[in-house]
Design a protein around this nucleic acid. Structure first.
Lengths: 287, 287
DNA sequence: CCTAAAAACGTCCAATTCGTTCATTTTTAT
DNA sequence: ATAAAAATGAACGAATTGGACGTTTTTAGG
C-alpha cells in the first residue's frame, strides 16, 4: 500500500522548507494528491523519484521508510561493489539494504544498477563459491537478501500501464535474481512486467504466452543441465512462439548455446542493451 | 445488490481518518444512506466515483473492492481463502496484496495467518496443480506473488533484538514460501530470524550453525526426493547438531519420515504450535 | 429470543495544513 | 560589478484533520 505523506513530513525528510515543497507540488514537480479538504498528500515513490532525479539530499531517510544513513551523492562504483560483496557474504542485511538504496537514490536506472553493481557482485560471489571460499548457505543467503531488497525497490517504483511483458527461468534453473531484475527494469521502463518465477518448463511458457499475449517475453538462463539438450528444446520452443511476442534471452549460461532460432528472438549480454530494446519496442507499439 | 460499506471501512480504504470521512458525508461530498438507527452506509460505486471524477480527491483506491473481514469468523475466513485462491490463480497481484493486508491488519498473528489463510490457499492450489487444472506457471506465479507480499509484510514488522534463529529448506526442496513464513513468524515473535534460503545441503547447515550458534534452527521440508535416503541423512544430521541449538521440523513432506533422532529436535504440524514453542524458548533464555 | 461485545454515532479540541504575503538569499543577465 | 529575476523560508489567520470521549446501534453467539 502506497504510503502517503504530508508536505511537512516530506519537507523534513529531505531538508527543505515546507513552503518550497508546497511550491514544487503546485508547479507539478511532485505529483500531489489532495484530500477532499484540499490538503496535499504525496506518496513515497514520488519523493524517491524526486530525490533520484534532482540532487536532493536525504536528511532523514527514516521518515520515508528508507534505511538510516542513506545519503546521495557521488559514488565510487568499484568501492560499492566490494562493500556490497562483503556485506552479502557476511549476511549483513542492514548494510546491504543501505548500500543498495544509496546507489539507487543516487540516480541511474535499474539497468545501470544491475550491470554495474548487482551483476559484478553476484559474479564475484559465484567465483568465491566455485573456489570453495564460500559456504553454500552464504551464497544462498546473499541471494535471499538481494531478492528481498529488489522486492522492496519494486514497491517504490511508479507503476505505469504500458505494454505487457512476461518472463522467467527455464526448467532446472532456480536462479531468481536475474529474472527479478529484468522485471524491475521493465517496470521502471513503463512496462507491465511480471516474472512468472523460476524453473518453468517450456510447455507452460507457451501456455502463459497464449493466455496473456505479452509484447515481450524474457527468458533468463543462468543454468542449464545438458547444454545440447537444452539448446534443442529452446530452439524448438522459440519457433513456436507467435510472432506478436518478442522473445529476449539473457544469462550467463547462454554462452554455451550455439545458435538461436526464430526471427523474433534475440539475446542480450547486459541489462542496458535489453533496456534499449524494450524502449524501442515501447515507442512503436504497432507491431 | 449494491455493496454497502461503513465509514470506517471506506476511511481505511482511501486512507483518511474516520472523522474526516464522516464530515465529508455530512457535507454532501459523499452520497450517504442511513440505517434506521442512523448509521451511515456508503455504497462502493459512490466511492469510486468520488475517486475517479473527484476533482482532486484521489487517495488510495487500492483497498476498495472487498468486504473487509469484520471479525475472525470461520465463515469470513473461508471466503477469504476462496477469494485469495482465485486472485492467486488469476495472477491478480493487486487483489492478492489487498486481501493479505486486510487479513493482517484486521488482527491476528502471522502464525494464524499462515495456518488459516496461506496454508489452505496454497494447499488448494497444489491440489489443482496435481489434478492438472492449473498451469505450472500459474502455480509458480502464485508463489512469486505471495513471496513478494511476505517480504513486504516483513518491512512493516517491528524488528526486535531477541534470540537468533536460522532456517531453510534441504537440498532439492525449492519451496520458498514456508521457510519465509517461519522467518516472518519468528521475527514477529521477537526473534532475530534469518532464512538462509532453499535447497541447502545438510553440510552447509552444519557450517551455518557452527558459525552463528542460533538458539533455534528450522528446517522446512516440503519435498524430498528419496524418502528413506532423506530420512537417513536427516537423522544423521540431527544428532550432529550441538545441544545449544534447538531444531524444529515442519512441512508437508514430513509425513513420509518415520522417526526423528536427536533429543533436541521436534516436528510441528502447524505454525501456531511452532510459535508456542518459540515463545517458550524466548521466555527461558538460559539453556 | 436475549445478552454482551464490537462498531458507529455525535461532539469536541489540539495539532496540522491551507493559501497568501513578504523579507532574504541565490542565480542569471547585462 | 551591478541589477533584475528567481527561488527560498518564515509568518499569518482561516480552514482541515484526526484522535478522544461517552452514548447508542448493530452484530455475534448461546
Amino acid at each position: 500500500m502506497k504510503q502517503l505523506l504530508s508536505p511537512k513530513q516530506v519537507a523534513r525528510a529531505i531538508g527543505v522548507s515546507e513552503s518550497s515543497l508546497k511550491r514544487w507540488c503546485d508547479q507539478g514537480l511532485v505529483p500531489t494528491e489532495r484530500t477532499a479538504g484540499g490538503h496535499r498528500r504525496i506518496c513515497v515513490g514520488d519523493v524517491v523519484q524526486l530525490i533520484r532525479q534532482g540532487d536532493q539530499t536525504v536528511l532523514r531517510p527514516e521518515l520515508l521508510g528508507l534505511p538510516p544513513g542513506t545519503r546521495t551523492g557521488a559514488h565510487n562504483r568499484q568501492r560499492s561493489i566490494e562493500t556490497l560483496v562483503d556485506a552479502l557474504i557476511a549476511g549483513d542485511a542492514e548494510l546491504t539494504r543501505r548500500l543498495v538504496f544509496n546507489n539507487f537514490l543516487g540516480g541511474g536506472t535499474i539497468a545501470e544498477l544491475a550491470d554495474e553493481l548487482f551483476a559484478p557482485a553476484m559474479h564475484r560471489i559465484g567465483d568465491c563459491w566455485k573456489c570453495g571460499d564460500l559456504e553454500v548457505y552464504q551464497e544462498h543467503r546473499a541471494c535471499e537478501m538481494l531478492a528481498r531488497i529488489l522486492h522492496e525497490l519494486r514497491t517504490i517504483l511508479p507503476q505505469a500501464k504500458g505494454l505487457v511483458a512476461l518472463g522467467g527461468t527455464p526448467s532446472g534453473d532456480h536462479y531468481r535474481l536475474a529474472t527479478t531484475l529484468v522485471e524491475l527494469m521493465l517496470i521502471e521502463a513503463g512496462w507491465r512486467a511480471t516474472s512468472l518465477g523460476t524453473s518453468l518448463p517450456f510447455s507452460t511458457l507457451t501456455k502463459a504466452i497464449e493466455k496473456h499475449r505479452p509484447t515481450l517475453f524474457w527468458l533468463s538462463v543462468s543454468h542449464t543441465g545438458d547444454n545440447s539438450h537444452f539448446s534443442h528444446q529452446l530452439n524448438e520452443w522459440l519457433v513456436s512462439v507467435p510472432k506478436s511476442t518478442h522473445v529476449v534471452l539473457g544469462g550467463q549460461a547462454l554462452g554455451h548455446i550455439d545458435s538461436i532460432a526464430g526471427d523474433n528472438a534475440q539475446s542480450f549480454h547486459n541489462f542496458a542493451s535489453l533496456r534499449q530494446f524494450a524502449d524501442r519496442l515501447s515507442e512503436q507499439p504497432a507491431v
